[in-house]
Each structure stands twice: as C-alpha cells, then as structure tokens.
Amino acid sequence: MIFSTLEHILTHISFSIVSIVITIFFMTLFVHEIVGLYNSSERAMIVTLFCITGILVTRWIDSGHFPLSNLYESLMFLSWSFSIIHMVPKIRNHKKKNLFSAITAPSAIFTQGFVTSGLLTEMHQSTILVPALQSQWLMMHVSMMVLSYAALLCGSLLSVALLVITFRKNMEIFCQSDSLSFLIRPIFFDKIQYVNEKNNVLRNTCFLSVQNYHRYQLIQQLDRWSCRVISLGFLFLTIGILSGAVWANEAWGSYWNWDPKETWAFITWTIFAIYLHTRTNNNWGSKNSAILASTGFLIIWICYFGVNLLGIGLHSYGSFTLN
C-alpha cells in the first residue's frame, strides 16, 4: 500500500516541477529573460530524474513485474531515458553541452508532462501481465527498444535543428533576441565579448562574418553530436530487435513474424543504417544526411505510437508467418 501511495506522491511532484519548468521556459521565450533561472532548470532536471526513477522503482515493487507492460509505463520509461541521456554528458564533464541540453531537456520535460498529465489516467493502475509477457526477455528487449527510441529521437531532433539553422539566413535571432538566448548564450557569450573588446570600431562590419563563422561551427557541432547519438541509438536498436527476435523464438516458435510492430522497427533500423552509410561517403554532405535523420524522427513515432493506434482500427491485428 505504501508503494502505491509513494508512487502517487512522486507523480504529483514530478508533474508540478514539470509545469513550473515549462512555465519558466515559455515566460523566457515570450516575455522576459531571467538569467538566474537557468541553473534552476538544471536543478529541476535532476529532481525530475530522481522522481521518475522513484516512480519506476515503486511501480516495479508494487506490481511485481518490470514496469514496461503497457503504453503508460513505456512512456514513463521513455522520459526517464531522455533524462538519462541529458545527464550523461554532465557526468563525463563535457562542458560545452548546452546545445545538446537544448534538445534533451525539453524532450524529457514534455514527455514527462504528457505522461503525468490527466490524459492517461485510465492506464495509471498497475496492470497484470498477460501470459505471453511473463518472461525474462521482457526486461532486456523492451528497455533496449525504448532507450534506442530516446537516443534516436534526440539524434534526429539535433538533425532537425541543424536543418533549421542551415536554412535560416539571418543570425539576429541567435545573438540578440531573448528567445533562445538563455540556452544558446553561454556558448557565444565569450566569443562575442572577445570580438567586442578587440575591435570596437569594426564591430558592425565584422559582426556578420563572425556570425557566419559561429553558425558554421554550430552546424559542425550539431552534425557531430547527432551522428554520435544516432550511432549509440542504432546500437541499442540492434540489440533490442535481436533480443526481441530471440524472445519470439522462445515463446512462439518463430523469430520473425512480419507483424506491423516488428516490421516498423526493422524499417527504422534500415533508415538509420542508410544514414550511417551516407556519412561514410563524403560526397553526400551533412545537409542530406540531416534530412534523412529528420525523416527518421517521423518513422520512430509511427513505429512507437502509430502501429498501436492503427492496430485498433484494422481488421485483425495478428502475426502472419512467412507461409
């Protein structure tokens, strides 16, 4: 009894924190920037991580099975993965990760907000596990899949950011307006200051070329980071799909039935394998591979959500073997 109460408390706390962070974010974006609150959002992310971990652990203890058996639990796990991916660079003490955080932190916050909001209350209850899911493979397969989705989503969002920056002509919005500056400013602060100090006279004329140089650097960084994250996500996706195939063989006798969920996971894997291959060939350029990774974003959502939603509408959602 105490564990379900604890889980309830943690859900409320995490929702409150998430609401506050989103409020701060939108305030900063549209109204006025408060520089001091940047650190608050970092602290909030750490607290959210602890809350989500607590929720998952108490759910595990309360229901007796690994908390990944329905959509609610897997979304919770997804937001936990986003938080972990957000935290990892900080642990390894890479200082220049503001770019990365700009993608992972909002993802974690929005996913967690969606999960703990009132939209999914009917799934909150701990459910029983159907016979087919009572296996040790559940832990490995589904957790790897959700982790890979989180990593690949981050990577493809970074590619989307890269495309956005490539296609933006004016750099004004980055250097002067308040909108994204509480995320981006720490990168450019020193450089702009340096330029200002050095060359006050030519400031206006040099500004544009300095802007272009920074933009170029930003694109390079985004490119590198998206490639790294997508490689990691690809590794997890490979392990997830293969462990799923082995599990299917143990449970139902066939390691690959072409049912929609498995097929779409394989399609996602193929798309990102193509992405990795376009990067080995230098002629393709970073822009084209970024476009590819952005389509990967859509495909992951189809794979994760779309298949479940469509499966309700279609006639018979079942598995068909190769016969």
């Binding site: 072409w258 097929t263 399609i267 193929t270 394998a273 291959h277 080995t280 068909f320």
Partner: peptide, 25 residues
C-alpha cells in the same frame, strides 16, 4: 557501389512499409 546499396536498402524499407499498409493474406 555504395549508392546502389543505399538504394536497395531504401527500397526494401519502402516495400516493408507497403506490406504493413496493405492487408496481407
């Protein structure tokens, strides 16, 4: 040729997607 390989992988993916949209059997 790498481009051919990429094209093949792409068409395999497209056919698989089509196979999930069209009812089978």
């Amino acid at each position: 040729n790498l481009s051919l390989a990429i094209g093949e992988m792409g068409s395999v993916a497209a056919l698989m997607a089509l196979g999930t949209v069209i009812e089978q059997g």
